[in-house]
Simulated assay, not measured.
Amino acid sequence: MTIPAPQHPERPAGWISTGLSWHDGRALLGAVRGGRVHERAVAPGTEVGWLLGGPRRCTGAWLAGATERTPCPHHAEIAPDGGATQCPACQSVDRGLALARDQILDDGRTYLLYLAWFGEGLLKVGLTAEQRGDSRLLEQGALAYAFTARGGLPAVRRAELTVAASGMARERYKSRLKTDHWWSHGDAPHRRTVLTEARARAHGLLKGHAVELLADRPVVDHVERFGLADGAPEVYREITGLAPGAVIAGTLRPPVGRHLFLDQPDGSGPLLLDTRRLTGWALTPVTGRAPEGLALQERVRPPEPDTQEALF
Rank of each mutant, 00 (worst) to 15 (best):
R109D: 10
A129T: 00
G19T: 10
A41K: 12
G25P: 13
R201S: 09
T307M: 09
E120V: 11
T279H: 05
D94I: 07
H209S: 11
A243F: 05
A210M: 00
L105Q: 15
K124V: 01
A282V: 12
E10V: 13
V286L: 13
A76K: 01
Y111R: 14
P4K: 10
R132G: 01
I239Q: 11
L20E: 04
H23W: 09
D107P: 12
T279N: 07
G35F: 15
F226N: 03
R192N: 05
A164C: 08
C58K: 15
T67A: 15
L228Q: 04
A282S: 15
A200R: 12
G141K: 00
T162K: 14
I78P: 02
T110I: 12
D274N: 15
A41Q: 15
D263S: 04
E130A: 15
Q103N: 00
R258A: 09
A165T: 01
T148P: 08
G257P: 10
R199P: 00
P80T: 03
A198E: 12
G186P: 09
V125T: 14
R199N: 05
P303E: 15
L138A: 08
W62K: 12
L213E: 04
V42H: 06
Q140K: 10
P189C: 11
T18L: 11
A200C: 02
E292A: 15
R158M: 08
G152F: 07
D274W: 10
P270G: 04
G83M: 01
A144I: 00
F312S: 12
G19Y: 08
W182K: 02
